[in-house]
Design a protein around this nucleic acid. Structure first.
Lengths: 119, 119, 119, 119
DNA sequence: GTGGTCTAGACCACC
DNA sequence: GTGGTCTAGACCACA
């Protein structure tokens, strides 16, 4: 996996985990790969994955069974959805609209782009 | 002024400068505040503002008259517009659309939000 | 059974065993459940219970008859009482008092809580 | 500084920081030592201190000014007090009382110990 | 100077 | 096998 430079790797991994849960690839109560396993898969130090998991555990998206591994928390999908929607609507969208105005782009143009994009 | 955590302060200042130019608050060939002046205004180390100006100077949005100060480059407004439009359409929009899909938000909802937002 | 995160599971099980002996639920010379039995009861790996029993055996609180099972050692109750009292008075209590001071809680309040608690 | 074995060093450091704040040694809005500084003071790797600070930052007990250092959050003292009191009353005290009963220690004896202890 | 991140490697307790 | 912690050392962006 390739990582972008402007964001910490452990956060990019966290996002990819969330996506997997949102997409239903990892379901609730599923065991997810061990830190070592995912580390070698991604070509990353296990410590970095451990940091990702610690972060996700604090957000109650995954939980740990000692000596066994990490599991997807029941309700994780809903939790991710609501928190990301909230973050999106409250933080990103206002800046997005502001930028539209500043750059003189209409919402109609965005719509057209979207339709082209999803065709 | 308050700064967000996820972006370098000098870049956030740069954005606010660009906004002022886009809005016509600072017109082309206008002198903009000195590094020290803006620094105290914003409650920020002058070095940080210096970095902002250096950054904007490289992008040819402002230029320096030695011993006098910084000035808005002729054509700066157009330059900002085109570069930001390009950056916006090529880099932000795809991620924006992807997020919409992931969060199950329709482009229609965005439109509604926009209309409410600008009323 | 649910386990807390801050202490090893096998020690939490050991405590519950000691409690049962203190309460007289398991009397001296009684046979206690097999490793496998208790493991499934608690939803825990038998190895973990084995570790608990090994630990208690070392403290001479239980003993093993090969091929038959584990039994409560004669005098176990007294042994648990004295060792735990010692540990409690020497190690827990000082930290407990220190915390009271730090949090501004008086011994009087503790007494009141206790009386409410045991009513 | 010496550390006990049964708890992670970074958590023990966190506790000592909280104590300093509770005791008023570090007041709100004060700058606390840099990770390197405190690391060498305690004879500990700077990474470990960094982990402590990250942990305390998440609990909003300290905050970071980029490139400058960590500062005690306004209201940190109150925050620590309430969270620790809550933790103490809800989690520790019930177990404490339970142990008293099991060990046959009366609340009166505790009081006597306390008075001896604080003389 | 500051903190943030990452790697490599180690040791540990636990299951 | 699992994760948790710590160290040493490095590089980076930032103020």
């Amino acid at each position: 996996m390739e990582f972008k430079d402007h964001q910490a790797i452990y956060l990019q991994i966290a996002e990819s985990v969330c996506e997997k849960i949102l997409n239903g690839i990892w379901k609730e109560e599923d065991r997810i790969p061990s830190v070592r396993e995912l580390g070698t898969t991604l070509g990353v130090n296990p410590n970095t994955v451990a940091r990702t998991y610690e972060h996700l555990q604090q957000r109650e998206i995954i939980y740990n069974k000692r000596g066994i591994g990490f599991f997807v928390t029941p309700g994780a999908r809903r939790e991710i959805l609501t928190s990301q929607r909230k973050q999106f609507l409250q933080e990103e969208l206002p800046g997005f609209f502001k930028k539209l105005d500043l750059l003189g782009i209409t919402i109609k143009e965005i719509e057209d782009f979207y339709n082209k994009h999803t065709q």
